[in-house]
Design a protein around this nucleic acid. Structure first.
Lengths: 223, 223
DNA sequence: ACCTGAACACCGTTCAAGT
DNA sequence: ACCTGAACACCGTTCAAGT
């Protein structure tokens, strides 16, 4: 019985901003952004909370870094495709990354310091539209509409209290909501829920590409 | 010099859940959702923090109530219009209310208890689409796409560090971002910023209806 | 019936101090 | 150079107690 636990080799590696960021992302991925406290983060890294302040100025620096890290994970191979395929692939890839890191979209919306990965991503998307012949103005319109749609869809999806690719879970939740009011009071809501959402095979996740195509169809026409 | 300050007539009115909710909304509107603490809210109401727990089970009940209150403020007169005008007017009205209560959209996304005002709103929108001849499936597609777009646009707009209906403020912020990197590194981003965003008369807020029309145009074609 | 004081288990952060 | 203990000014919430 020694008085000190053996120091793990991991905890002996000196801290760096990178290690702090990686640990913050791992913690937020696993336990949710509300579990990301300076004290818990320090614990995961084998140090005291106060040690973190030697490597980052404050918690906001960590949050900004996490967002940019997430953006750097977006698959950029869409830059090789024609504009419409490129927009589709980038939308799917953005959605994938944001679903993998459910904290990212809310952080994005509360933080306003664009990092290098975000700027690079923006530049690539704008470049594709410009090279495809979209005017500057139409490029701005297109980018605004696509981003609003993508972020809005993912926000909605992440805020639903069930896995959107599971028809069973969706049906259960829909059923619970249905039972909270008489169907005569909200007849159209009841109809849509019973005859669509609660049907086997319904998949809210499938709505993503449908809505995306609505926007892309119109853009193609206006090009 | 009396030992007790005169009790204001206001603070003598007994608390109710409604008064707590109204005060919570007033506080969040004025000082931001991060200022809404049980202690500050109690102070505004002239009681101690612990008194609030006699009227509401916990803070989440207040947050849920605030969201539904905001939804009840949406102008419902769109129900009289043809489907396309109705969708446009309801989108504009939702955006207005969410801009008036900047805390509402983030609360909506973190809370999952739909209140009566939200359910009624959903039912009305679905009813318009169904009566206009949209199939159940197409109604689901349309609603999903429109809501994703509306909430996404408002989220983006509220997260920008300037008033989106001010061309001057947008240009200033754009200029600051531009100076954070050499223009050769992100040429397309630089071009869009300099030749569009920083031009006099540019108004990000104007993008809202353009993107909305992209979706509505496609829906009209598919109807 | 309605409100409160004291307490608990948390936060982020500062600062002087340790090695 | 890197880490920490103690402290500060906060949180939401419980509970027994006051009127």
């Amino acid at each position: 019985m020694t008085t000190e636990p053996e120091p793990s080799t991991e905890s002996r590696t000196p801290l760096t901003k990178e290690r702090v960021l990686d640990a913050a992302i791992a913690l937020a991925d696993e336990s949710g952004i509300e579990s990301l406290t300076m004290r818990k983060l320090a614990e995961d890294l084998g140090v005291e909370a106060m040690s973190l302040y030697y490597h980052v100025a404050n918690k906001n620096v960590i949050l900004d870094g996490m967002v940019d890290q997430a953006f750097s994970e977006i698959d950029m191979s869409f830059v090789e495709l024609d504009w419409r395929s490129a927009m589709t692939h980038r939308a799917i890839s953005v959605r994938e990354v944001l679903s993998l890191h459910p904290w990212a979209i809310s952080l994005m919306q509360s933080r306003t310091n664009p990092g290098p990965a975000l700027l690079h991503h923006h530049d690539s998307v704008i470049g594709i539209l410009r090279q495809a012949g979209f005017s500057i103005e139409m490029t701005a319109h297109a980018y605004s509409a696509l981003d609003a749609y993508i972020y809005g869809f993912v926000s909605q999806e992440l805020s639903l209290p069930f896995d959107t690719s599971s028809a069973e879970e969706a049906a259960e939740v829909a059923d619970a909501i249905l039972e909270s009011f008489p169907t005569e009071v909200f007849p159209y809501l009841a109809e849509l829920t019973i005859e669509h959402v609660m049907q086997p095979g319904y998949n809210y996740a499938d709505e993503f590409e449908f809505g995306l195509d609505l926007i892309l169809d119109s853009l193609e026409r206006l090009k």
